Simulated assay, not measured.
Amino acid sequence: MTRTKPSQAPSPVRRLAYRVLAILVALVVWHLFATGPGGSSDFPTPLDIFEAGADAVPTQDFWANIATSLRTAVTGLALVVLVGLPVGLLIGSNEITRRSTQLVLDFGRTVPAIALLPLFLLVFGAGRTLGVVLILVSAVWPIIIQTSYAVGQISPQLKRVGRAYHLSRWYRLRFIVAPSMLPFVFAGLRIAATIALLMAISSEFLGGSDGLGYTLLQAMQLNDTDRAFLYAFTAATLGLLLNLFFVLLQRRVLWWHSSVRAGGTS
């Protein structure tokens, strides 16, 4: 009887090599498409994007627009956390409240915030406030839902232990509620961060305020496809870096959790 060896995870060097190879294959396919079927529509090649980046990256406007979009996204995300965490705790701590608000949460998270943009433009005008409001309306739901679900899933035995030892509300929140809910909260936070950046850039694109979205709009209006692709990829890169930041933060805070030890947040 032959014994099968357990599958081993690839080494970090091999994982990096696989990712680099995938990127190279994607670039080759992109170049072949741009020089072939996409040539008739001025579809830029990777070299065209690189040349546009070489011209734009050293300029102050490029980094100023990135900083503007990031400020809007971070401001909106901070407001989302300040609103979403308390509301999620309040909903999840009571079974009746959780059941009675289920329909409201399901309805709220399915409403596209972009559909409310004309109304928000009339009320708040074009600017950072518009982006922050869009972020709050669209990104608060993952935080509320994940937090309320996490609080509702806390073991009844842990709750009874806290009451039996007459722990104060603060101690129960810190040593029972927080460790149980943090993995769920981080999952909602990563989703909310992606939505926040998307809404910040969308508000600049549709509202005409400064930022990456507005520079993308200008490039499209001038039919400058090279710069348009450059700004689009810049926004995608910011999204990846933002997600990476929260992955590293989650590993730092939840180093003791099984999902982090097993590499589940990578």
Rank of each mutant, 00 (worst) to 15 (best):
L70N: 06
L222Y: 05
A67K: 07
L248C: 09
R109W: 13
L89A: 04
P179I: 05
A262M: 12
A56Y: 02
A187D: 08
T97R: 13
L121D: 05
A26K: 02
L244F: 12
G36H: 05
R3P: 00
Q102G: 01
Q8R: 14
G152F: 07
L241C: 10
L119Y: 08
L21K: 01
V104D: 01
R109Y: 14
N94L: 08
A73H: 02
G264K: 00
A34T: 10
V247P: 04
W30A: 01
A34D: 08
L47H: 08
E51A: 12
A187V: 11
T75G: 04
L248I: 10
A200D: 05
T75I: 13
T237L: 15
N65R: 15
L116K: 08
S69W: 01
L216R: 10
G207F: 09
V253F: 07
A164W: 01
P46H: 02
S148Q: 13
S266G: 08
S41M: 09
L70S: 09
V133P: 06
V81F: 14
V57F: 15
D48T: 12
V151G: 01
L24A: 15
V151L: 06
I143G: 05
L16Q: 12
V13D: 09
R98S: 13
K5W: 04
H166R: 15
A219Q: 00
I144D: 05
L167M: 14
I96G: 10
A56G: 00
I66N: 10
P6N: 07
A115E: 10
V25I: 15
W255C: 09
I66D: 09
F246L: 15
A150T: 00
L21Y: 01
Q60N: 09
A150K: 00
A193S: 14
D210T: 14
M220F: 12
M220V: 10
Y149S: 13
P6D: 08
I195R: 04
M181A: 13
L136D: 05
R172A: 14
R169T: 12
S7D: 07
F184A: 13
A67N: 02
V104T: 13
M220Q: 15
S138F: 10
F120W: 14
L85P: 05
L32A: 11
A52V: 06
N65M: 14
H31D: 12
S100G: 03
L130W: 07
I135F: 03
L82H: 00
T234K: 12
L197Q: 04
L16F: 11
